[in-house]
Amino acid sequence: MRTLTAVLLLLGATLLQVTLLPRIRMLQGSVDLVLIVLLTWMLQEDNRPDWRLGLVAGLMVGYASALPDLILIVGYTLAALICQLLHRRIWQVRMLTLLTSLLLGTLAIHLITLSYLWLSDNPLSAGDAFNLVTLPTLLLNLILLLPVNALISELNKLIAPPANS
């Protein structure tokens, strides 16, 4: 049930990511809702972080994007692995884990995407890419993190209420 919910959530996030969210831009950056949903779901109480969800997220975004599927699968799986690793290290402070995972996950996905674009002879300036795309995306992700986290927490409680309630 939990896995099915996670896949449905990621599917909904991907649809929003393709249709609505690219219109909400800061400079050239846009929100990565799929990554936010992936990490907040993985770090919910009673959920054991599973890096394979990153694989699913990468497949979904890869289907919608012009980038090769493999690039996005590697990127999102790496973000999920970072989240799983951090959960074991600093699991006591969930929000701190979430923020750190989001920061490192966004950087990882952008770095892998940029590496691919550079290797495929796309004339991208590293400074422009960081200042105009990565930093604004990070800021937008952080802004959207709190409401998405609240929504997914409520959904998680709805699906599996805590044992003492």
Partner: peptide
């Protein structure tokens, strides 16, 4: 729709 990657 648009591409989800902000680089493309």
């Amino acid at each position: 729709g648009q591409d989800p990657s902000p680089f493309l």
